[in-house]
Design a protein around this nucleic acid. Structure first.
Lengths: 151, 151
DNA sequence: CCAACTTAGGTGACACGTCAACTATTCCGC
DNA sequence: GCGGAATAGTTGACGTGTCACCTAAGTTGG
């Protein structure tokens, strides 16, 4: 259990197994619930990011950074969402290489329909039973991990 | 911010965005590192579960439960791992419907090679900077969420 | 000013995960 | 014991994510 050993302590392992298991089961549960609105969890995240942005549009790269997605994943996903009329791409006049991703009226409508039930489920599953102190610790821990992972 | 509104509070949203982003970026980082050993993170999780089991074998359903995977996902994954010689399936004499999943010698060798660097990376990214108290809170929170999600 | 480099984004092939449907076996009530 | 329900596991089709590679446009040093 020394710091030099590569192994996880028993307590760390316990936390890690929950983390790994949730990495599968929580997205699966949210996806199942979102299916009713015809959206996937990925669709939802894209639509939230775009609908919050100025003028409801973001450069593709900025959107990728905000979601912490790889560019190619986002590119594929935008193509599929474009096919379903949820988003559109527009060319960028400032920078000929770039492109804007824009949420359409249909995309806005879809997310407004889906959002309340989704938010409620997230609260039920994750947040409602947490104390303020627990939430603060959780946020700090996640922020720290994220900083290390994304560097 | 009332409990009746479906929306997440600002503090909850902050935690939630980190959670969502990590759900993508942490597995991606671990996968990238594991690639050197020719294993994916999913392979790794399967091999850990099997190599810890009695006689290095588990019923397919028990393995699925332990990993919190859907059965069909595991079935597909075992087929692919079997093709690479990491695991084998054996028929179950007790219950003619069932099947055992077993780690092969090659599978054991692969995970023994991969484990130290993987464990070290998990510790670096997730655990090394946590206090004992933070770890305890994290474990409780994850355990609670998991219980609610998997019911 | 132009060749080398960098950056924005897209594409194709392939591995992965999910859902619905399927086969084979066991369990259970009558 | 036998017919229907439940259980263990697999399969195929399809949407998704990743890697490696590609094109096009901007950037920079000589």
């Amino acid at each position: 259990m020394t710091q030099d050993s590569p192994w996880l302590s028993a307590a760390q392992q316990q936390a890690w197994r929950h983390w790994i298991a949730l990495g599968t089961s929580l997205p699966a549960a949210l996806n199942r619930a979102l299916q009713e609105s015809g959206l996937s969890l990925s669709d939802y995240d894209v639509l939230v990011a775009l609908s919050e942005a100025d003028d409801r549009r973001l450069r593709v790269g900025d959107l990728a950074a905000r979601l912490a997605w790889e560019r190619s994943r986002l590119s594929h996903h935008l193509r599929r969402m474009e096919g379903r009329g949820l988003v559109a791409r527009e060319e960028c006049t400032d920078d000929g290489r770039g492109a804007w991703s824009v949420v359409t009226a249909a995309g806005l409508a879809a997310i407004r329909t889906a959002a309340p039930a989704h938010a409620r489920l997230v609260r039920e599953l994750v947040f409602d039973d947490l104390t303020t102190a627990e939430l603060a610790v959780l946020t700090d821990v996640l922020a720290g991990v994220r900083r290390r992972v994304e560097s």
